[in-house]
Amino acid sequence: MRKILNVLPALLLLVVASSFRQAGADWNIGTGYSVKFSTSGDVGGIFRTLTGAIHFDENSPATASFNVAVDINSINTGNGVMNTHAKSAEWFDGAKYPKITFVSSKVVKAGAGYQAIGTLTMHGVTKPFTLPFTFQRSGAGGLFHAAFTVNRNDYGIGKPGDVDDNISLELSVPVTKK
């Protein structure tokens, strides 16, 4: 009995700590997010659909994890012909590879922001990728912001030379606590 009583506080602490971690660090992707892409030319647009699981605590980035996906078929360049072209086999091949996914394996603090180190999968190609981002907490919610470039040739997207090789991406993702 004494043994049980000795272990009980530790168990309680573990349960409390675990529930605190769950409540404080799991986030739902809120409405009003934006996933923009651009080039130096007139090719640019947005992806309308972003889904995924975000676990992040700014006080403990080592415990963070991201598993997010962008729906290729939600692309909008503002032009119907370009949308169809972007989803075609020549570019993203949305029918065969309907998602762009990023899965983090580690998150580290980097200057004023953070870096999520993981793998980026596009067009059926998975490569190691470091995603720099910032997080701003506001009340019960927060805002993730990331701006980075991706070389589309690394993922076999499009023909070299048609459009800039490096595509700039900017994500702004408001989140609410789960």
Binding site: T77, G78, N79, G80, V81, M82, N83
Partner: peptide, 17 residues
Amino acid sequence: AIATKLPLELQSPELFP
């Protein structure tokens, strides 16, 4: 009209032409 680039907030630009 086919080449027109619409504001990104507009849905279904495919139907504009």
